[in-house]
Write a protein that binds this DNA or RNA. Sequence first.
DNA 1: TATTGTTATACTCTATAACTATA
DNA 2: TATAGTTATAGAGTATAACAATA
Lengths: 146, 146
Amino acid sequence: MSSDLGAPPAVTRRLGYLLKHAQLRLAELAEPLYAPLGITGRQLALLTLFGEGPALSQQDGAARLGVDRTTMVALVDELEARGLVRREVAPGDRRKRLVRLTGEGERVREAGEEVTRQAETLLLAPLSAEDAQGLRAALGRIVRGG
Amino acid sequence: MSSDLGAPPAVTRRLGYLLKHAQLRLAELAEPLYAPLGITGRQLALLTLFGEGPALSQQDGAARLGVDRTTMVALVDELEARGLVRREVAPGDRRKRLVRLTGEGERVREAGEEVTRQAETLLLAPLSAEDAQGLRAALGRIVRGG
DNA sequence: TATTGTTATACTCTATAACTATA
DNA sequence: TATAGTTATAGAGTATAACAATA
């Protein structure tokens, strides 16, 4: 009883621990799949964000992602440098920059979303389809704020 | 259809997004509760880790938490400076430092774990008891690596 | 006056490399 | 030679403050 290193440690039952490590594991699974596309998971999230629905300004995008608008500047800079998005002055308000995907950005987004599905499938592999769906739904409700 | 800002955005259905924001929300709920104890959530996780079972060396602790051993040095430094833990040379191996909670550290750990339960309860409030349990179990299985 | 994007700057978190002591 | 802890340093990632253009 002195080398009881296999005992279930309470830290690993904390939600904070579980959420952090689930995220780490997802990143581990996903990054190698993104690498061939030449983008990071973060960048793909941005392509997904700006690629859907009506064009968003940088600030709209920042708000949705929960990051600061100054952070968004750098993120959009990266994508613009790779030719995946372009900035357009908003017709109605010349202060705003609408972020739009280029043709190449659109292609990368589609390929990336397929890869995201693969990574999520790997992460959720230990769960039944039902439990996987339940996990996603539960997280969604938590995030949208009880 | 130009100001369709309420449409469900695909980014927010990605597991990466959900996990990150669930974590952010938990931190939001928990940090104000930890503040009166004079510790951060991170520090409490360390107290929980080192407070249970047989004493762990810094490196053992680092491995369990999934951080680098150099990171662990700084984390233990903080707790030691607050008088919550002390380092002891391991009897069998003078290179190792066993991290043990002081009496004060034990008191803070207990208070902190109670607060952690409260924060988790707040986070899980939108879920039924059954779904909350299902979420914890699903995350556990994912993290332990299916 | 207020807001959007931008820049400069600083802060936090974490890891890599190199050192010391022990094994 | 290898391992545990340590230190110095550097790299992400992010935010705050101040500025220019526009509203």
